[in-house]
Design a binder for these strands. Structure first.
Lengths: 195, 195
DNA sequence: CGCCAAACTGACTTACTAGTAAGTTAACTG
DNA sequence: CAGTTAACTTACTAGTAAGTCAGTTTGGCG
C-alpha cells in the first residue's frame, strides 16, 4: 500500500538537490525542512541520521543506473546509444540545476563522511565503471568505437572526464562540459556534436 | 624581514591538507588549531575569516602553477615533459595523502562557498586550462601529441579526467588514476607507462 | 464509536561553529 | 630602559548543527 503522505519522497528530492549543489557538509536538516514546511524532527523521523539519508540518496542513484542498464549489461546492444544517453543525461542535469553527480558530491568530502555513505559511494562507482567498461568493450567489438588499450581504462577515462567536467563547469560555464563531451567523441572516432 | 614565527605557514599547510581531504565544510578552525598546539583565536589572528584562509590557499596553488609554467607559457618547450610532470605531480600528491586537488575540493561545495573562494577557484581553473591548452598546442605542432579537434577541448578533457580520477581513486584505489593517466597517453599516441 | 499506529510537532539537549574582545608575553626600537 | 607592536591566550558570544523525546494529529479499521 502507498504511504499516506509523500513527505519522505519530498525530503529525498530536496536533500538530493542540496547535496549535489553544496556537498554533504554544506546543508543541514533545517535546509531540508524549511522549504517543505515541516520541522527538523520530521526529517529525523524518516531518516534518523544524516548518514542514513545520504546513503539512501546514493543507493537510489545506483538502483536507477541499474534499472536503466541491466538490459544492456545482460544482452549487449547499441554502445554508442548508451554513451550518448549518458552524456545527454549528464549535460541536462548539469544545465538544469548546476548540480554535480552524487559521486562528485561525496568524493570531495570523502574523509569527513560517515562510513555507510562511503560504502554506498563505492558500490555506485563500481557499478558505473562496470557498465561503462561493457559499453566500451561492445562498442569496440562492433566497430563503433576506436581506442587503444584495455576497455576498463577507457571507461574510467570517460567517466572521470565527465565527472570532472561537470564540476569544473561551475568555474568555467557550460562550454567546458560540451568541449569535453566532444573530445571524448573525437577520441573514439565519433563525430563531435555541433556547439 | 622574516616573520618571528612560522605559525602562519603551519596554519596554511594544515588547512590545505584538511581542505583537500575533507572539503571546505569538512573542517573547522579547531581542527587546525589543535594539532598545532595553538588556540582557535590564533588562527583568526592570521586569517580573520575562513573565506580569507581558503581563498589564500587556492591563490597559493595558482601562484605555484604560475611559477612552474611561466617559462613554458612564454617561450614554449617540451610539451610532453610538461604533461608528464603534471601527471607525476598529481599521482604523487594523491598517493601521499589521499588528497584531491584544490579545484576538486571546492568544486563540489561550490554553492556553499563564500564568494572570494569561488573567485579564487575561477582564476586557478582559468590559468590551468590556459596552460594545458598551450601544452596541447605546442605538443601537436611539434608532432609529440596526436589528437583531433581544438587544443582547448583536449586540454579540458585531460584536466577534467585527472581531476575526476583523483577523486574517484578514493572509491576505487590508486589503479584508477594510473589507468586514466595511461589512457590519456594512449589517446595522444604516447606509450603507456607500465603499471 | 474507540483503538491503533503512522506521521508528525514543539520543545529541548549537547556539541560545535565562526568569530570577537580584552588582556598577556616577548622581541625589537628609539 | 620605556614604549611599541606582533603574536598570541583566555574567555566569551551568538548562532547553528545533529539528534531526542514526549506529546498530538490524522486516517484507517474492527
Amino acid at each position: 500500500m502507498p504511504p499516506r503522505t509523500d513527505t519522505r519522497e519530498r525530503i529525498l528530492s530536496t536533500a538530493d538537490l542540496l547535496m549535489r549543489q553544496k556537498g554533504f557538509n554544506g546543508f543541514s536538516y533545517q535546509d531540508i525542512a524549511k522549504p517543505l514546511g515541516i520541522r527538523n524532527a520530521a526529517v529525523h523521523y524518516h531518516f534518523p541520521t544524516k548518514a542514513d539519508l545520504a546513503a539512501e540518496l546514493v543507493e537510489n542513484v545506483r538502483r536507477m543506473l541499474h534499472d536503466r542498464t541491466d538490459d544492456f549489461m545482460a544482452r549487449g546492444g547499441d554502445a554508442r546509444g548508451q554513451l550518448e544517453a549518458f552524456i545527454a543525461f549528464t549535460m541536462n542535469e548539469c544545465a538544469c540545476d548546476h548540480t554535480v553527480c552524487p559521486v562528485g558530491a561525496i568524493a570531495a568530502d570523502f574523509f569527513s563522511l560517515p562510513e555507510p555513505v562511503q560504502a554506498a559511494g563505492k558500490r555506485l562507482v563500481d557499478d558505473l565503471v562496470a557498465w561503462m567498461t561493457r559499453v566500451c568493450e561492445v562498442g569496440r567489438e562492433q566497430g563503433q568505437f576506436r581506442f587503444d588499450g584495455p576497455a576498463v581504462a577507457k571507461a574510467e577515462e570517460i567517466l572521470t572526464a565527465l565527472q570532472g567536467a561537470r564540476q569544473m563547469t561551475r568555474f568555467r560555464g557550460p562550454a567546458m562540459l560540451r568541449n569535453v563531451a566532444n573530445q571524448i567523441r573525437r577520441d573514439l572516432g565519433l563525430p563531435a556534436a555541433r556547439d
